[in-house]
Amino acid sequence: MKQSIHPDYRPVVFRDPSADFAFLTRSTMSSGRTVEWEDGNVYPLVDVDVSAASHPFYTGRGRVIDTAGRVERFKQRYGKR
């Protein structure tokens, strides 16, 4: 790899404020805010809108789509052609 053309790859804390969930991982993202993590070190903090703790698919709070109603409506419109 060429030197000094790649972004800095370092530990970063990602936080989902709606679910009160945070995790430490490595990333190239940068942030002006920092947070003290459980290990006592200070890391950059990036807030995210959705994480596995708040996404409806992973939490089981997803909506069920009424596909039967859509099929019936399609049959009513185009079924007799």
Score class of each variant (00 low, 15 high):
Met1Gln: 12
Met1Val: 08
Met1His: 10
Lys2Cys: 07
Lys2Met: 08
Gln3Lys: 14
Gln3Ile: 08
Ser4Gly: 07
Ile5Ser: 11
Ile5Val: 15
His6Trp: 11
His6Glu: 14
His6Ile: 11
His6Lys: 14
Asp8Asn: 12
Asp8Thr: 10
Tyr9Cys: 05
Pro11Tyr: 08
Pro11Phe: 08
Pro11Glu: 13
Val12Leu: 03
Val13Ala: 14
Val13Gly: 00
Arg15Asn: 08
Asp16Thr: 09
Ser18Lys: 15
Ser18Thr: 15
Ala19Pro: 06
Asp20Val: 06
Asp20Ile: 01
Phe21Tyr: 15
Phe21Val: 00
Ala22Tyr: 04
Ala22Met: 11
Ala22Thr: 08
Thr25Leu: 10
Arg26Cys: 07
Thr28Glu: 12
Thr28Val: 14
Thr28Ser: 09
Met29Phe: 11
Met29Gly: 00
Met29Ala: 15
Ser30Trp: 01
Ser31Gln: 03
Gly32Cys: 01
Gly32Pro: 00
Arg33Lys: 13
Thr34Ala: 07
Thr34Gln: 11
Val35Asn: 04
Val35Ile: 15
Glu36Lys: 15
Trp37Ser: 06
Trp37Ala: 08
Glu38Gly: 01
Glu38Asp: 12
Glu38Cys: 05
Glu38Lys: 09
Asp39Asn: 15
Gly40Cys: 06
Asn41Gln: 15
Asn41Asp: 11
Val42Lys: 13
Val42His: 04
Tyr43Glu: 02
Tyr43Trp: 10
Tyr43Gly: 02
Tyr43Ile: 04
Pro44Gln: 01
Leu45Arg: 00
Val46Met: 02
Val46Lys: 10
Val46Ile: 09
Asp47Leu: 13
Asp47Gly: 06
Asp47Arg: 02
Asp49Tyr: 07
Val50Ser: 08
Val50Lys: 08
Ala53Asn: 04
Ala53Lys: 09
Ala53Gln: 08
Ala53Pro: 10
Ser54Trp: 07
His55Met: 02
His55Asn: 14
His55Phe: 08
Pro56Ile: 04
Pro56Thr: 05
Phe57Cys: 04
Phe57His: 11
Phe57Ser: 10
Tyr58Asn: 06
Tyr58Asp: 03
Tyr58Gln: 06
Thr59Asn: 03
Thr59Gln: 02
Arg61Trp: 00
Arg61Pro: 00
Arg61Ser: 13
Gly62Gln: 15
Gly62Lys: 10
Gly62Val: 03
Gly62Met: 11
Val64Cys: 00
Ile65Phe: 09
Ile65Glu: 04
Ile65Asp: 03
Asp66Met: 02
Asp66Trp: 05
Thr67Val: 13
Thr67His: 06
Thr67Asp: 03
Ala68Tyr: 05
Ala68Asn: 10
Ala68Lys: 12
Arg70Asp: 01
Glu72Val: 04
Glu72Met: 12
Arg73Pro: 01
Arg73Lys: 14
Arg73Tyr: 01
Phe74Asn: 03
Phe74Trp: 13
Phe74Asp: 04
Phe74Leu: 14
Lys75Thr: 02
Gln76Thr: 13
Gln76Tyr: 06
Gln76Asn: 11
Gln76Leu: 11
Arg77Ile: 10
Arg77Tyr: 00
Lys80Glu: 12
